[in-house]
Design a protein around this nucleic acid. Structure first.
Lengths: 256, 256
DNA sequence: GGTTGTGAACAGTTTCACAGCG
DNA sequence: CGCTGTGAAACTGTTCACAACC
């Protein structure tokens, strides 16, 4: 799939590593808390602790933004809040639509932190005609038929998909056709989008499976060392066989 | 992130890279779909397309699990489903508790994909005494006072925190003290946990901010090249796997 | 003194490209 | 021939450690 796109040649000065971008919101949150407590300055060590990273990483991250600190002193909280907000594009207003107002969509609509940082729920959209007009979080739900008009009238460029998996790609296509260029996908599906559109996904089931992997590993090692730990629950431990046998057939398979 | 450590010195042969682990659930989902359509074998190219990655990456990932393919042919779907499930620890039952039954907690409790893969909602816990006994998704909500007993009686090792930010660390401490060693955190807070406990976070507000960053950049470059077509930047690749995600300050209805 | 900013070493991840095998 | 499996190269991200500076 090509993905083509060379990297911007000018990716020298403005090129902030993706990993750094992903941490900026974390720093911003910690800084906002400090700001509310009227703390004037903070050292990389303190801020790093509050954000849950180590200080070297934080300093390196900030170095991509510029030299906003003062040696021997630290960083000015207000100034950094502003710089990071600007870098993230939070100094402007981002109207957002949420498509799929089920349990999750409603939870997202009610989510307070939404509005707090430049994001504004411009509309709620659902395919169920019976929901049309009903207010959720104070915003009336609109029908999918009007999706394109809603996007255009509100100048929406960020869409949140909270529909069932089966509807996600179709909704995605319509959002993109209407002008949306960033999508946050909660449906457990791989969305395909044209070049130029960003997709980020949030997938509960994947997160749990990753935890289960590590959990299983812990249980396995526990056996080797002690035995006194807290409970350990594996009911059906039964050997998780060391490794494959010489080939083998497929022993019972798993659930859906 | 967070979480940290994966060390284990002796983890050389069984050491599957974290990036690979994060993709296994994706492969598993694609394989399950193929399995349901009774597709017997699949090539790395086809499976990679279905999972939204490139084939070289997929083959490298599978090579960490063992040699489960057949040259010139591809992979046996059922066999791979089994192997990945086993590797992820999904052949056993994982009882999970959800703490904080607001909008989000309820959405999670109702989420079907939960039960489908070895995860079972063992209990719902909320601090609001008025909710006690009320069923959500068919499961009666229990009061926080009984948290420790619930964890122990059910042998729970995975906990989901969907409380407001202010309550998250306290809930986390109690979960850990009661024996939980893996936590999925939806509250917008950095949790601190002792060594040996895994935390993954899902933070909606962070995801949106990352999208806003890229959105802003697109808008900026548009000015430079402008003109016809979506020429701007692209990043078709599915974003990094979820690291953060939803929920923010007040997941709605939820008293501390 | 204290703390930032950063080059350089290191670690992890992705991609390439092709040998090896069915 | 076709497709997997994998070394090696390229790239991205993290950590170290210290010079520069207040």
């Amino acid at each position: 799939m090509a993905t083509g796109r060379t990297h911007r040649p000018a990716t020298r000065s403005r090129g902030i590593p993706e990993a750094t971008v992903a941490r900026l919101p974390l720093y911003l949150r910690a800084l906002t808390a400090l700001s509310e407590r009227s703390v004037p300055t903070v050292s990389s060590e303190e801020l790093a602790a509050a954000a849950g990273v180590n200080s070297a990483k934080l300093r390196k991250d900030f170095s991509y933004l510029g030299s906003y600190g003062t040696r021997g002193v630290g960083y000015d909280v207000e100034y950094l809040v502003y710089q990071i907000s600007r870098e993230l594009g939070l100094t402007q207003d981002w109207p957002v639509v949420i498509v799929g107002i089920g349990n999750l969509g409603a939870a997202l609509a009610n989510y307070g932190g939404f509005a707090s940082r430049g994001f504004r729920v411009a509309a709620l959209i659902d395919a169920d005609a019976a929901m049309a007009g009903k207010p959720v979080a104070g915003i009336p739900v609109q029908h999918t038929d009007d999706l394109e008009k809603i996007i255009k009238d509100n100048g929406v460029s960020i869409g949140v998909i909270a529909t069932p998996a089966g509807a996600a790609q179709q909704v995605c296509d319509r959002l993109v056709a209407a002008g949306v260029t960033s999508i946050l996908n909660f449906a457990p599906t791989v969305l395909s989008v044209p070049d130029g559109v960003d997709v980020r996904k949030v997938d509960l089931s994947i997160e749990l499976q990753i935890l289960a992997f590590h959990e299983q590993r812990k249980a396995g090692e526990e056996a080797a060392s002690d035995g006194a730990g807290p409970a350990a629950v594996t009911r059906e431990e039964s050997a998780r066989s060391a490794d494959q046998g010489p080939d083998g057939d497929v022993p019972a398979v798993m659930p859906a």
